[in-house]
Every structure is written in structure tokens, then in C-alpha cells.
Computed example of a mutant assay.
Amino acid sequence: MRRVFTNTAGLAALGALAFATAQPAQAGTLPAHQPARAAADTPAYFEMTDVTRERFVIKLTKSEDIQHARALVNGETNDRPHVITRITKRQADYNPRWSYHANPDTTQFFDQAFEVCDATIPYVEDNLDEAGGPFLPGLVWCDWTSRLIREIPAP
């Protein structure tokens, strides 16, 4: 029963990520009743680790995600402690050790997710050429052992 729940929760997390990152059919046009989005939030950077004890930096741009990340780091919550994101197969200036980075527009937090997106930080690096196919379909990555350890200054 637990596996069914985990798989269902994983589908929900992947669906939420896909929905959150979907582009509107007519980008740039807003209905008259919808206000234009305010200027982008100031990004925040967090260091995460996993069972391998490697370190990986993520950039967060949405204020609600930044607040949640700070609450995790400060021990104010244990809710949704793991990172789920779509990876981008190129190095980011704030995360120079790795050949990939977490897309800030898709980065969210989760409690449980599907096995298909689970991989450790170094495993993603070692198998980056296969990411997007059977390994990390859609480039969705959800390291089950990921956890934020600290906020770091902007580069």
C-alpha cells in the first residue's frame, strides 16, 4: 500500500512540476482581469546535499520557495524537505563544480516522489548524457535524499 501511495504522490509531484512549468498558449498577453506580474523576486541561493554528502547549489527565484527554503534551513519546518526540479545540461556560474544545474523556474520541494526521477548529485553528473530519456525523463530530477543545509551569498 505504501508503494501505491508513493507512486501516486510521485505522479502528483511530477504533474505539479509539469503544470507549473507549462507555458501559456499566448505568452505575453494577459486577460484584462489579471494584473501583470511584479518584477522578479531577488534570487536566493542554497546549498543542498544528499546521501553522498556532495554539495550542490540551487538558485530560487520565487518568494514562496525562498521562504520555504529558509524555514527548512532554520529548522522551522520539516514539510517538503526534498528538491524537485528540471535540470539544465550546462554549468551555472553559481554551481561551477557540476556540468548541470537546477532550473530555477521549475525548482520546488516535495515529501515523496516517483523512483524515475530519483538520483544522487554525482549519479546525475556521471550519467548526464543519458538524462532526458529513460534516465530522468523530461529532465525531472528529485533526489530523495536531498536536503538544504544552508543559504549562501549570491555569487
Rank of each mutant, 00 (worst) to 15 (best):
R3G: 02
F5K: 12
T8M: 13
T8K: 12
A9S: 13
A9G: 12
G10A: 03
L11D: 09
A13R: 04
G15H: 13
A18I: 14
F19M: 08
A20P: 06
T21F: 00
A22M: 14
A22F: 05
Q23L: 04
P24C: 10
A25K: 12
A25M: 12
Q26V: 13
G28D: 05
L30K: 05
L30T: 04
L30I: 03
P31H: 12
Q34K: 15
Q34T: 13
P35I: 11
A36W: 07
A36N: 06
A36F: 07
A36D: 11
R37T: 10
A38V: 11
A39P: 02
A39G: 09
T42G: 07
A44N: 03
A44D: 01
Y45Q: 01
Y45E: 04
Y45R: 00
F46N: 06
E47S: 10
M48H: 00
D50C: 02
D50A: 02
V51I: 15
T52A: 03
E54G: 06
R55K: 14
F56D: 07
V57A: 08
V57L: 10
I58R: 05
I58L: 15
K62G: 07
A69T: 01
A69N: 00
R70A: 00
A71E: 14
L72R: 00
V73P: 07
V73G: 04
N74W: 02
G75T: 11
D79S: 11
D79K: 13
P81M: 07
H82L: 02
V83M: 04
V83C: 01
T85S: 08
R86P: 07
T88H: 02
K89S: 09
K89Q: 14
R90N: 04
Q91R: 13
A92H: 11
D93S: 13
N95T: 04
R97D: 15
W98M: 04
W98H: 10
W98K: 06
H101C: 03
T107H: 01
T107Q: 03
T107R: 00
T107G: 01
F109K: 01
F110K: 02
D111I: 01
D111H: 07
D111F: 03
Q112T: 12
Q112E: 14
A113D: 08
F114G: 09
V116G: 08
C117Q: 01
C117F: 11
T120W: 03
T120V: 05
I121L: 13
P122G: 02
P122E: 00
Y123N: 11
D126R: 15
N127V: 11
N127I: 10
D129W: 02
E130A: 14
A131M: 12
A131Y: 14
A131R: 05
G133Q: 10
G133I: 01
P134C: 07
P134N: 09
F135C: 01
P137S: 02
P137W: 08
V140K: 06
V140G: 02
V140T: 10
W144A: 04
W144N: 03
R147E: 13
L148S: 05
L148A: 03
L148H: 04
I149V: 15
I152F: 03
P153T: 13
A154V: 09
A154L: 06
